[in-house]
Nucleic acid binder design. Sequence first.
DNA 1: GTATCTGCAAACCCTTTGCAATAAG
DNA 2: CTTATTGCAAAGGGTTTGCAGATAC
Lengths: 154, 154
Amino acid sequence: MKSELEIFREYIRQRGLRRTPERELILAEIFATHEHFDVDSLYLSLRQKGIKVSKASIYRALPLFIDCGLVREVDFTDGHWHYEHIYGHEQHHHLRCLACGEVLEFAEPGLSCLGLRLLQEYGFTVVSQHLDVKGYCRACRGHEAPAEPEKETP
Amino acid sequence: MKSELEIFREYIRQRGLRRTPERELILAEIFATHEHFDVDSLYLSLRQKGIKVSKASIYRALPLFIDCGLVREVDFTDGHWHYEHIYGHEQHHHLRCLACGEVLEFAEPGLSCLGLRLLQEYGFTVVSQHLDVKGYCRACRGHEAPAEPEKETP
DNA sequence: GTATCTGCAAACCCTTTGCAATAAG
DNA sequence: CTTATTGCAAAGGGTTTGCAGATAC
């Protein structure tokens, strides 16, 4: 299996873009980080390692990583984007606790045939699918009651 | 079945908030509108009817509607939030065309038992779940090829 | 009467962009 | 050499907030 760096260099070459240390340092940091990140946390963790890259460069590099399928936008809950690296990571979805903000990942194999169904039924070609579940995690359950019980058909 | 206005008034009363014409006009407009909206379109459609409500009031009213389960945030694709009214509307998910931006709705009954599974497996109490699918609609299919074919396990 | 709500405009904050200097190919 | 990229700082744009006046209750 190719490394993320190889994937990225191939993408860069194909597009006639330029291989720069900044982009590769940012990419390395993204894949060194355990999970979700945002621009600010990424910027800070680079700085803490003594790597000086401007936020502008991070903002300009992210669309490239997304475009070549290494990274995806996850959510926009706090008024800014959160991202995660997806290459080499099982397809998964997210549980977000409304009380503590914790994010859990889970798999939903039942969705594997959804793409085919959407193609047949709507002529829609699926590129990505993500299930976003909000609620209360085990620790917060009871402490903070949900406003309304979930209903399938209100 | 209670009307959205009744739901909202009950919510307002319970919280000791105040029933104002502005909030109810905004709510009425949201439910008069066919589907998805954003703050700007809502503001403009109110204005076109000669209803003067400030954007600040809209921004301050939306969290209330969301909190009482009448409205939900849908996505943040264009750099700002989009919303939809959900009360009295079948639970559904979204297909977003990456080429033309069109949004289709579809049902996924297979997810109806997900809540129970997440509760058993993770102790997670589901409040809401939304499946966000990106890809290319029938009209755009072929015109603009997806960057990477979808893979279940990369 | 008192506390909430509205409208206005300014403040906020994340993100984008213009520009000159730098560096990749 | 030519053109993409970087860093800086300023601009952008949706959202939030402070404040004075209006208004529910």
